[in-house]
Design a protein around this nucleic acid. Structure first.
Length: 299
DNA sequence: AAGAACTCCTGGATGC
DNA sequence: TGCATCCAGGAGTTCT
Protein backbone atom coordinates (compact mmCIF):
# COMPACT_ATOMS: atom_id res chain seq x y z
CA UNK A 1 0.00 0.00 0.00
CA UNK A 2 1.28 3.44 -0.76
CA UNK A 3 2.15 5.15 2.50
CA UNK A 4 4.35 8.18 3.03
CA UNK A 5 7.62 6.76 1.62
CA UNK A 6 5.91 5.45 -1.50
CA UNK A 7 4.04 8.70 -2.11
CA UNK A 8 7.24 10.70 -1.64
CA UNK A 9 8.96 8.41 -4.16
CA UNK A 10 6.16 9.17 -6.60
CA UNK A 11 6.49 12.90 -5.93
CA UNK A 12 10.21 12.79 -6.69
CA UNK A 13 9.55 10.86 -9.86
CA UNK A 14 6.92 13.33 -11.05
CA UNK A 15 9.00 16.40 -10.22
CA UNK A 16 11.21 16.45 -13.34
CA UNK A 17 8.35 15.34 -15.59
CA UNK A 18 5.76 17.89 -14.49
CA UNK A 19 7.53 20.98 -13.23
CA UNK A 20 6.84 23.97 -15.49
CA UNK A 21 4.76 21.85 -17.88
CA UNK A 22 1.40 23.06 -19.09
CA UNK A 23 -1.49 20.61 -18.94
CA UNK A 24 -3.15 20.71 -22.35
CA UNK A 25 -5.56 17.83 -21.89
CA UNK A 26 -7.21 15.73 -19.19
CA UNK A 27 -9.22 12.60 -19.95
CA UNK A 28 -11.28 10.81 -17.30
CA UNK A 29 -11.77 7.15 -18.20
CA UNK A 30 -13.50 6.19 -14.96
CA UNK A 31 -15.85 8.71 -13.37
CA UNK A 32 -15.24 7.26 -9.93
CA UNK A 33 -11.70 8.69 -10.00
CA UNK A 34 -13.29 12.18 -9.96
CA UNK A 35 -15.93 11.37 -7.31
CA UNK A 36 -14.64 14.03 -4.91
CA UNK A 37 -15.11 16.74 -7.53
CA UNK A 38 -18.45 18.47 -6.91
CA UNK A 39 -18.94 19.05 -10.65
CA UNK A 40 -17.70 15.64 -11.65
CA UNK A 41 -15.20 14.69 -14.37
CA UNK A 42 -16.16 17.58 -16.65
CA UNK A 43 -15.35 20.12 -13.95
CA UNK A 44 -12.08 18.37 -13.14
CA UNK A 45 -10.96 18.59 -16.75
CA UNK A 46 -12.28 22.10 -17.33
CA UNK A 47 -10.51 23.60 -14.31
CA UNK A 48 -7.17 21.87 -14.78
CA UNK A 49 -6.61 22.15 -18.52
CA UNK A 50 -4.55 25.21 -19.36
CA UNK A 51 -2.86 25.22 -15.98
CA UNK A 52 0.91 25.33 -15.63
CA UNK A 53 2.51 23.15 -12.97
CA UNK A 54 4.58 24.86 -10.31
CA UNK A 55 5.42 23.03 -7.11
CA UNK A 56 4.84 19.28 -6.75
CA UNK A 57 3.95 19.02 -3.07
CA UNK A 58 2.98 16.42 -0.50
CA UNK A 59 1.62 16.09 3.02
CA UNK A 60 1.35 12.58 4.42
CA UNK A 61 -0.19 10.46 1.66
CA UNK A 62 -1.72 13.42 -0.18
CA UNK A 63 0.04 14.72 -3.26
CA UNK A 64 -0.71 17.88 -5.23
CA UNK A 65 0.46 19.98 -8.13
CA UNK A 66 0.27 23.73 -7.70
CA UNK A 67 -1.22 25.27 -10.80
CA UNK A 68 -0.76 28.71 -12.33
CA UNK A 69 -3.11 30.04 -15.03
CA UNK A 70 -5.93 27.82 -13.79
CA UNK A 71 -9.20 28.43 -11.91
CA UNK A 72 -8.11 25.59 -9.65
CA UNK A 73 -5.02 26.39 -7.65
CA UNK A 74 -4.04 22.77 -7.20
CA UNK A 75 -4.60 19.30 -8.59
CA UNK A 76 -4.75 16.96 -5.59
CA UNK A 77 -4.18 13.22 -5.81
CA UNK A 78 -4.60 10.39 -3.35
CA UNK A 79 -3.31 6.98 -4.42
CA UNK A 80 -5.65 5.02 -2.18
CA UNK A 81 -4.53 1.41 -2.03
CA UNK A 82 -3.24 0.82 -5.50
CA UNK A 83 -2.77 4.11 -7.32
CA UNK A 84 0.22 4.66 -9.60
CA UNK A 85 1.40 7.32 -12.00
CA UNK A 86 2.86 6.26 -15.34
CA UNK A 87 4.69 8.52 -17.72
CA UNK A 88 4.65 7.98 -21.49
CA UNK A 89 5.04 9.75 -24.80
CA UNK A 90 1.40 10.63 -25.48
CA UNK A 91 1.82 9.59 -29.11
CA UNK A 92 2.45 6.07 -27.82
CA UNK A 93 -0.95 5.86 -26.20
CA UNK A 94 -4.35 5.41 -27.82
CA UNK A 95 -7.30 7.46 -26.62
CA UNK A 96 -8.74 4.39 -24.94
CA UNK A 97 -7.59 3.42 -21.44
CA UNK A 98 -4.28 1.61 -21.31
CA UNK A 99 -2.56 -0.43 -18.62
CA UNK A 100 -4.90 -3.41 -18.76
CA UNK A 101 -7.94 -1.20 -18.50
CA UNK A 102 -6.83 0.21 -15.17
CA UNK A 103 -6.00 3.68 -16.44
CA UNK A 104 -8.46 6.07 -14.75
CA UNK A 105 -7.25 9.55 -15.75
CA UNK A 106 -4.71 10.83 -18.23
CA UNK A 107 -2.97 14.21 -18.21
CA UNK A 108 -1.56 15.36 -21.53
CA UNK A 109 1.39 17.73 -21.28
CA UNK A 110 2.63 20.43 -23.63
CA UNK A 111 5.92 18.64 -24.28
CA UNK A 112 4.37 15.52 -25.76
CA UNK A 113 4.39 13.46 -22.58
CA UNK A 114 1.36 12.12 -20.81
CA UNK A 115 0.98 11.16 -17.17
CA UNK A 116 -1.56 8.46 -16.42
CA UNK A 117 -3.25 7.77 -13.12
CA UNK A 118 -3.57 4.00 -12.97
CA UNK A 119 -5.50 2.41 -10.10
CA UNK A 120 -6.65 -1.18 -9.94
CA UNK A 121 -8.77 -1.01 -6.78
CA UNK A 122 -10.16 2.47 -7.47
CA UNK A 123 -9.82 3.85 -3.95
CA UNK A 124 -7.64 6.67 -5.26
CA UNK A 125 -8.93 9.98 -6.59
CA UNK A 126 -8.02 13.28 -8.20
CA UNK A 127 -9.50 16.66 -7.29
CA UNK A 128 -9.10 20.18 -8.62
CA UNK A 129 -9.04 22.30 -5.49
CA UNK A 130 -8.19 25.73 -4.14
CA UNK A 131 -5.51 26.51 -1.59
CA UNK A 132 -5.89 27.74 1.99
CA UNK A 133 -4.26 27.58 5.42
CA UNK A 134 -4.36 24.20 7.15
CA UNK A 135 -6.18 23.68 10.43
CA UNK A 136 -3.21 24.64 12.57
CA UNK A 137 -2.25 27.55 10.35
CA UNK A 138 1.13 25.93 9.71
CA UNK A 139 1.09 25.81 5.94
CA UNK A 140 -0.91 26.61 2.82
CA UNK A 141 -2.37 23.40 1.43
CA UNK A 142 -5.37 22.40 -0.69
CA UNK A 143 -8.62 22.92 1.22
CA UNK A 144 -9.30 19.18 0.99
CA UNK A 145 -6.03 18.52 2.85
CA UNK A 146 -6.62 21.12 5.57
CA UNK A 147 -7.65 18.55 8.18
CA UNK A 148 -4.49 16.48 7.68
CA UNK A 149 -1.77 16.88 10.31
CA UNK A 150 1.88 17.50 9.38
CA UNK A 151 3.85 14.35 8.60
CA UNK A 152 7.12 13.55 10.39
CA UNK A 153 9.22 14.91 7.52
CA UNK A 154 7.71 18.41 7.66
CA UNK A 155 9.28 21.38 9.49
CA UNK A 156 5.92 21.99 11.20
CA UNK A 157 5.97 18.53 12.77
CA UNK A 158 6.59 18.57 16.51
CA UNK A 159 6.97 15.08 18.00
CA UNK A 160 6.36 16.25 21.57
CA UNK A 161 3.12 17.95 20.55
CA UNK A 162 1.96 14.99 18.47
CA UNK A 163 2.72 12.70 21.39
CA UNK A 164 0.69 14.86 23.75
CA UNK A 165 -2.29 14.84 21.41
CA UNK A 166 -1.96 11.09 20.99
CA UNK A 167 -2.03 10.61 24.77
CA UNK A 168 -5.19 12.66 25.03
CA UNK A 169 -7.04 10.16 22.89
CA UNK A 170 -9.07 7.37 24.40
CA UNK A 171 -8.32 4.58 21.98
CA UNK A 172 -5.70 1.99 21.08
CA UNK A 173 -2.26 3.18 20.01
CA UNK A 174 -2.45 1.60 16.54
CA UNK A 175 -5.75 3.33 15.80
CA UNK A 176 -4.16 6.61 16.84
CA UNK A 177 -1.13 6.07 14.60
CA UNK A 178 -3.45 5.54 11.64
CA UNK A 179 -5.40 8.73 12.38
CA UNK A 180 -4.16 11.21 9.76
CA UNK A 181 -5.34 14.19 11.82
CA UNK A 182 -2.85 13.32 14.56
CA UNK A 183 0.22 12.60 12.47
CA UNK A 184 -0.01 11.86 8.77
CA UNK A 185 1.64 9.42 6.41
CA UNK A 186 1.42 6.25 8.51
CA UNK A 187 -0.58 3.30 7.13
CA UNK A 188 -1.02 -0.30 8.19
CA UNK A 189 2.48 -1.45 7.24
CA UNK A 190 4.46 1.25 9.01
CA UNK A 191 2.10 1.27 12.00
CA UNK A 192 2.88 -2.42 12.58
CA UNK A 193 6.60 -1.82 12.07
CA UNK A 194 6.68 1.17 14.45
CA UNK A 195 4.80 -0.72 17.16
CA UNK A 196 7.23 -3.61 16.87
CA UNK A 197 10.22 -1.27 17.12
CA UNK A 198 8.71 0.41 20.20
CA UNK A 199 7.65 -2.95 21.68
CA UNK A 200 4.06 -1.82 22.04
CA UNK A 201 0.91 -3.89 21.61
CA UNK A 202 -1.47 -2.34 19.04
CA UNK A 203 -4.31 -2.22 21.59
CA UNK A 204 -2.29 -0.45 24.26
CA UNK A 205 -4.48 2.38 25.55
CA UNK A 206 -3.15 5.74 24.39
CA UNK A 207 -4.02 7.42 27.68
CA UNK A 208 -1.76 5.04 29.60
CA UNK A 209 1.34 5.83 27.54
CA UNK A 210 4.08 7.93 29.09
CA UNK A 211 5.16 10.97 27.11
CA UNK A 212 8.48 9.19 26.61
CA UNK A 213 6.98 6.07 25.04
CA UNK A 214 4.51 8.05 22.94
CA UNK A 215 7.42 10.02 21.49
CA UNK A 216 9.32 6.76 21.07
CA UNK A 217 6.68 5.11 18.92
CA UNK A 218 6.29 8.25 16.79
CA UNK A 219 10.06 8.42 16.37
CA UNK A 220 10.05 4.74 15.39
CA UNK A 221 7.45 5.44 12.71
CA UNK A 222 9.54 8.31 11.35
CA UNK A 223 12.66 6.14 11.36
CA UNK A 224 11.15 3.19 9.55
CA UNK A 225 9.57 5.45 6.94
CA UNK A 226 12.87 7.23 6.47
CA UNK A 227 14.65 3.93 5.91
CA UNK A 228 11.98 2.82 3.45
CA UNK A 229 12.32 6.04 1.53
CA UNK A 230 16.07 5.63 1.38
CA UNK A 231 15.79 2.19 -0.21
CA UNK A 232 12.84 3.12 -2.41
CA UNK A 233 14.34 6.27 -3.77
CA UNK A 234 17.52 4.74 -5.05
CA UNK A 235 16.27 3.86 -8.49
CA UNK A 236 13.16 4.17 -10.56
CA UNK A 237 12.25 4.02 -14.19
CA UNK A 238 11.03 7.43 -15.39
CA UNK A 239 8.30 5.65 -17.32
CA UNK A 240 7.07 3.93 -14.22
CA UNK A 241 6.75 5.90 -11.03
CA UNK A 242 6.85 3.11 -8.54
CA UNK A 243 4.38 3.05 -5.69
CA UNK A 244 4.36 -0.62 -4.90
CA UNK A 245 5.16 -0.94 -1.22
CA UNK A 246 4.23 -4.60 -0.98
CA UNK A 247 6.58 -6.19 -3.41
CA UNK A 248 10.07 -5.07 -4.01
CA UNK A 249 12.68 -3.04 -2.35
CA UNK A 250 11.56 -2.66 1.22
CA UNK A 251 9.76 -5.91 1.76
CA UNK A 252 12.84 -7.82 2.82
CA UNK A 253 13.53 -5.26 5.54
CA UNK A 254 10.14 -5.51 7.23
CA UNK A 255 10.18 -6.87 10.77
CA UNK A 256 6.61 -8.05 11.23
CA UNK A 257 4.26 -6.94 8.44
CA UNK A 258 3.44 -9.90 6.21
CA UNK A 259 5.74 -12.18 8.21
CA UNK A 260 3.11 -14.32 9.91
CA UNK A 261 4.68 -17.46 11.35
CA UNK A 262 8.23 -16.29 10.64
CA UNK A 263 10.61 -15.67 13.54
CA UNK A 264 10.70 -12.27 15.20
CA UNK A 265 13.96 -10.58 14.24
CA UNK A 266 14.64 -9.80 17.92
CA UNK A 267 13.57 -12.87 19.84
CA UNK A 268 12.67 -15.53 17.22
CA UNK A 269 9.12 -16.06 18.49
CA UNK A 270 6.80 -16.62 15.51
CA UNK A 271 5.06 -13.44 14.35
CA UNK A 272 1.28 -13.56 14.73
CA UNK A 273 -1.42 -11.98 12.61
CA UNK A 274 -4.59 -10.78 14.27
CA UNK A 275 -7.70 -9.17 12.92
CA UNK A 276 -7.93 -5.44 13.50
CA UNK A 277 -10.85 -3.27 12.29
CA UNK A 278 -11.56 -5.68 9.45
CA UNK A 279 -7.89 -5.66 8.52
CA UNK A 280 -4.86 -7.24 10.08
CA UNK A 281 -2.17 -6.51 12.60
CA UNK A 282 1.18 -8.27 12.76
CA UNK A 283 3.15 -8.42 15.98
CA UNK A 284 5.60 -10.44 18.01
CA UNK A 285 3.70 -12.21 20.79
CA UNK A 286 6.71 -12.04 23.09
CA UNK A 287 8.10 -8.54 22.45
CA UNK A 288 4.64 -6.96 22.22
CA UNK A 289 2.62 -8.48 25.03
CA UNK A 290 -1.03 -7.57 25.44
CA UNK A 291 -1.05 -4.98 28.21
CA UNK A 292 -3.28 -5.09 31.26
CA UNK A 293 -4.44 -1.64 30.20
CA UNK A 294 -5.54 -2.53 26.69
CA UNK A 295 -8.03 -0.18 25.17
CA UNK A 296 -11.53 -1.58 25.51
CA UNK A 297 -14.02 -0.92 22.80
CA UNK A 298 -17.36 0.54 23.80
CA UNK A 299 -20.02 -2.14 24.25
C1' DA B 1 -18.82 15.00 19.79
C1' DA B 2 -15.31 11.61 19.93
C1' DG B 3 -14.67 7.16 18.57
C1' DA B 4 -15.95 3.11 16.10
C1' DA B 5 -18.35 0.81 12.43
C1' DC B 6 -19.56 0.86 7.72
C1' DT B 7 -18.67 1.46 2.87
C1' DC B 8 -16.55 1.94 -1.50
C1' DC B 9 -13.71 -1.57 -5.21
C1' DT B 10 -10.92 -5.08 -8.02
C1' DG B 11 -8.37 -9.16 -8.97
C1' DG B 12 -5.15 -12.62 -7.23
C1' DA B 13 -5.23 -16.46 -4.03
C1' DT B 14 -7.63 -20.12 -2.00
C1' DG B 15 -11.06 -23.85 -1.44
C1' DC B 16 -14.19 -27.43 -2.84
C1' DT C 1 -10.99 -27.23 -14.36
C1' DG C 2 -14.30 -23.94 -12.86
C1' DC C 3 -16.88 -21.46 -9.94
C1' DA C 4 -17.53 -19.28 -5.36
C1' DT C 5 -15.48 -17.16 -1.55
C1' DC C 6 -11.91 -14.75 0.78
C1' DC C 7 -8.69 -11.07 1.37
C1' DA C 8 -5.98 -6.60 0.94
C1' DG C 9 -7.21 -1.66 3.23
C1' DG C 10 -7.31 4.45 3.02
C1' DA C 11 -10.35 7.47 4.36
C1' DG C 12 -14.89 9.66 3.83
C1' DT C 13 -19.42 8.91 5.72
C1' DT C 14 -22.59 7.32 8.99
C1' DC C 15 -23.86 5.69 13.40
C1' DT C 16 -23.77 5.46 18.53
Amino acid sequence: MPELPEVETVRRGLLPVLTERRIIGLIVFRDRAARRQAGGPAELAATVVGGRVGEVARRGKYLWLQLADSPAEALVAHLGMSGQFRVARSADLPAAPAYRGQERVRLVLDDGHSVSFVDQRTFGWLLADSLGPDQAGDRVVPVSVGHVAPDPFEPAYEPARAAQRLRQRRTGVKRALLDQTLVSGIGNIYADEALWAARLHPDRATDTLSQRSAVAVLDAAAEVMSAALASGGTSFDPLYVNVNGESGWFERDLAVYGRTGLPCRRCSAPVVRESFTNRSSHRCPRCQRRPVAAHRRAA
